[in-house]
Design a binder for these strands. Structure first.
Length: 504
RNA sequence: UCCAGCUUAGCUCAGUCGGUAGAGCAGGCGGCUGUUAACCGCCGGGUCGAAGGUUCGAGUCCUUCAGCUGGAGCCA
């Protein structure tokens, strides 16, 4: 091997750091570890244009370069800093390396000139592989070609650890299955990074919204003794000898919480065992479910509208760079303003029929008849009519859960509402007003063939001071998918659980 | 569960009419002082998803199975 010397050098630098963990920690506190390079007999500052001397004895602790985050580079222009991170990509010419380094806060380019760092350091840097962990020191300067972009003029580096084999995710394209098998590594890439940060901001916005409006966080249990709604397929587990199911909704518990706290919400994982294989489904997803005492369907719709506007506003306010990275059409998100159109289910069925008539090619999807739930295509056709979410309310009671309140004006209808996002992102919210009469509720439980004894505690909510109330559930991943403009929800959760995927 | 498509190098993919395997990236070596999936030259790398069948001959045609992807249903 012709590069044996290079490798030996790199490993020496590495060993010099690993020799003593205590010494290492101490040096870490003091500042950068460029001394290893010098200890090898190479002066990393040789030929440097920097005027400030870096003598070991002379420099005070405060003069040593500070470790900074890449996102804060702009605050340190003109000063010597140290970056700690991983090599994202490397481009090189004979006497100049461009090391793209990511540190979790961002990615920046470290320009290393042979004349600045000397032969040995330059050759060692040439041997760096993708995802090598390292510390790079250098002066923060403005990018010569890009406005508002900063880069590092490298003066030295320390290899923390070299990859033991080639990084599997290369610069070229990969298929979804390969990437999902390497999800733990895929999260390091720019695109996934942007999505996770949008998700984080949405989660923060959700908590902010409810916390600022007097809601109390009351988390629902994950193990439940029976199906909450009696519709979905649930994951069954063995709970000390008796069957238990992973929750499909915290809603019934939130009704109890609303009676205790007035306004409550839960926010946690939810599980569905249906064998769904579409771009909108996960076996494990996160749902936020607010429930409000003394409100009605109109109040639920007002809340949902304000809620979505708040989330969209926060994403636009805080995640512009991430949306740009994802090439999201921001103009479509900026149109998401109150008021949202509110159409009854009956009107919506007619609108879908109108849209379908406009289609040139006959669709294979079954035609939507009054009394049926919307299919995915129906939702998209309806959403096409509007540039903001559309709220479809007053559904046929047969397609809604047993706890929905009947419309006093038309007993065929339930006071439920679905919020359908624009651009084909489908249902992001489902909710409505709940039945408060014990008598009507009992009849509904019986009609749906549900075991009465499993709902004794739930019936108590009506027994002891029944009250008008309502709420809704929002699927976090569908919201993230919509905000990011993604084609599939699997990228919206760090480690997706799907029909054919349980790992990593 | 049903319908459709895909499966060839570590990765992404070509592979014509059935005639015995190709490119780019990644890896290795060399070159290049402002690169942006950098670029240029060279090198190594294959049980063509599995089994069976048709044929002188199968990556290519047929059957079955498996895996993956998308869609339907169900839902957030």
């Amino acid at each position: 091997m012709g590069d044996a010397d290079d490798r030996a050098h790199v490993e020496r630098v590495l060993r010099a750091d690993n020799g003593d963990r205590h010494a290492r920690a101490e040096r870490l506190e003091q500042g950068p570890l460029l001394f290893e390079i010098e200890a090898e007999g190479v002066d990393a500052s040789h030929g440097s244009r920097r005027s400030r001397p870096r003598g070991k004895g002379a420099s005070m602790a405060s003069e040593r370069p500070a470790v900074v985050s890449i996102q804060d580079l702009a605050k340190h222009v003109g000063t010597e800093v140290v970056l700690q991170g991983w090599l994202y990509n490397k481009r090189s010419s004979g006497k100049l390396h461009f090391l793209e380094v990511r540190d979790g806060s961002g990615i920046t380019q470290c320009v290393m000139a042979k004349a600045d760092v000397g032969e040995d350091v330059f050759v060692a840097a040439d041997g760096l592989q993708q995802e090598a962990s390292l510390r790079v020191s250098g002066k923060v300067v403005a990018h010569p070609k890009r406005e508002g972009v900063y880069e590092l003029q490298a003066t030295g580096f320390e290899l923390v650890a070299a990859p033991s084999e080639a990084y599997p995710i290369t610069k070229k394209e990969h298929g979804p299955d390969f990437l999902m098998d390497h999800r733990h590594l895929w999260l390091r890439s720019k695109r996934q990074h942007a999505i996770m940060r949008v998700r984080h901001t949405i989660v923060t916005a959700i908590r902010e919204f409810f916390d600022d409006r007097g809601f109390t966080l009351i988390d629902a249990p994950i193990f439940t003794p029976s199906a909450c709604e009696g519709t979905s397929t649930l994951f069954e587990t063995d709970y000390h000898g008796q069957p238990a199911y992973l929750t499909q909704s915290g809603q019934l518990y939130m009704e109890a919480a609303a009676a205790a706290f007035g306004k409550a919400y839960c926010f946690g994982p939810t599980f569905r065992a249906e064998k769904s294989k579409t771009r909108r489904h996960l076996a494990e997803f996160w749902m936020v479910e607010p429930e409000v005492a003394f409100t009605d369907l109109e109040g639920v719709m007002d809340l949902a509208e304000d809620f979505i506007c708040h989330i969209v506003g926060r994403v636009l306010e805080r995640r512009r760079p991430e949306l740009a990275e994802l090439e999201r059409d921001v103009a479509a998100l900026e149109k998401i303003q109150k008021p949202f159109p509110r159409v009854t289910y009956t009107d919506a069925v007619n609108l879908v029929a109108e849209e379908r008539a406009k289609l040139e090619a006959a669709s294979e999807a079954p035609r939507l008849e009054w009394g049926n739930d919307f299919g995915a295509e129906d939702e998209t056709l309806l959403a096409k009519r509007f540039d903001r979410p559309v709220m479809v309310h007053r559904w046929p009671e047969e397609v809604k859960a047993f706890y929905m309140k009947r419309d006093p004006a038309d007993p065929r209808l339930a006071l439920g509402v679905d919020v359908i996002a624009p651009e084909g992102y489908g249902e992001v919210i489902g909710g409505g007003q709940r039945e408060e009469s014990l008598e009507v509720l009992d009849a509904a439980i019986q009609k749906h063939g549900l075991p009465m004894d499993a709902f004794e505690w739930y019936r108590d909510i009506r027994k002891y001071g029944g009250f008008p109330h309502g709420g809704f559930g929002l699927g976090l991943e569908r919201m993230v998918s919509w905000m990011c403009g993604l084609g599939h929800v699997r990228e919206t959760i760090p480690f997706p659980r799907m029909l054919n995927r349980l790992s990593p």
